[in-house]
């Protein structure tokens, strides 16, 4: 195995020395990277299933493993807190924001890339620039705006504000995808008498499905992970999203319940991680594609 790998690396002479060098310069650093990048997740998982006494005593048993695994933390989280409701709120907000953003982005990207009007480049550039406005400078005036609209403490405030950072990204991604679809297909359809909307629905969209999937995954994960708007616009406990609720509702008093905190973080990360694992190929390719273009 390693010989085959080394051989593909170039015209290097295969000797045990070069193989050792390869292991030291590539595999050892790579293993260290993977170890460091994954350790917090491992630690999160381990902690979530540890009983409290094991959690706070490293001398009775090996802290890197669980001597007596327990589901108590998860049970406590699911049945003694509003966690299921937070999950539901987060899910609803993420799905609604994703649908709105994809709808708006598909139309905008189609107009910019395919209808090609004077100034379409500048509209594209303006949308790209919108992506560069970080939420941290917007949340204060947005809080004021949300207050004026009477949306304060309502999930609708999140559903309407999340598209501000989702639309620029999705539009950007979809412009790239639409560009890869041959223009001739649309011209053929135009000659056959199809209307523009029919072309979009019957020809462009089916061909852009991989792009739509990537845009959807990005939008869903970004809105699932969003924090500062949800922190600033929602105040009542039962309407909070998972990231905010864990930090503000589960952290109380001086003694932190690390077990249930970690269980909450683990459960809150799982939906995006599972979602991501299904579409990882789309994700990686569109991420690298977005950079390449």
């Amino acid at each position: 195995m390693s010989e085959a790998v080394a051989a593909s690396d170039g015209p290097t002479i295969l000797s045990s020395e070069s193989r050792i060098r390869r292991v030291v310069t590539i595999y050892v650093p790579l293993a260290c990277f993977l170890l460091v990048l994954l350790f917090p997740f491992y630690w999160m998982t381990i902690t979530a299933f540890k009983p409290n006494e094991e959690l706070l005593d490293y001398h009775q048993s090996n802290p890197f493993w669980i001597a007596h695994p327990t589901l108590a933390n998860i049970k406590k989280l699911l049945f003694e807190t509003d966690y299921p409701r937070w999950l539901l709120t987060t899910m609803t907000v993420a799905i609604c924001a994703t649908i709105i953003s994809i709808f708006a982005s598909v139309l905008a990207a189609y107009a910019i890339q395919r209808l090609r009007f004077r100034g379409s480049n500048y509209v594209g550039l303006a949308i790209y620039l919108a992506y560069l406005v970080p939420p941290t400078i917007l949340f204060l005036p947005l809080a004021e705006l949300v207050f004026q609209f009477g949306l304060y403490d309502s999930p609708l405030a999140l559903i309407l504000t999340y598209p501000t950072f989702l639309i620029p990204f999705c539009t950007w991604l979809l412009i790239g995808y639409f560009k890869s679809i041959p223009y001739e297909l649309e011209e053929c359809a135009l000659i056959d008498g199809a209307s523009r909307l029919q072309i979009l629905r019957r020809i462009t969209l089916p061909l852009a499905v991989p792009g739509l999937i990537s845009a959807g995954i990005f939008a869903f994960t970004l809105s699932w992970n969003e924090f500062i708007y949800a922190l600033a616009f929602i105040s009542s406990e039962e309407k909070k999203t998972v990231p905010v609720a864990i930090l503000t509702e589960l952290v109380q008093g001086d003694v932190y319940q690390w077990g249930s905190l970690m269980a909450g973080s683990l459960l809150g990360s799982l939906p995006v991680a599972i979602f991501y694992s299904f579409f990882v190929e789309y994700y990686v390719s569109s991420m690298t594609g977005a950079v390449k273009e």
Partner: peptide
């Protein structure tokens, strides 16, 4: 796929793991 994980997971949740 594994390397991208820290980027996928909600920042606040991994931050809580770091806090611990």
């Amino acid at each position: 796929a594994i390397i991208l994980l820290p980027w996928i997971v909600p920042t606040v949740l991994s931050a809580i793991a770091f806090w611990w």
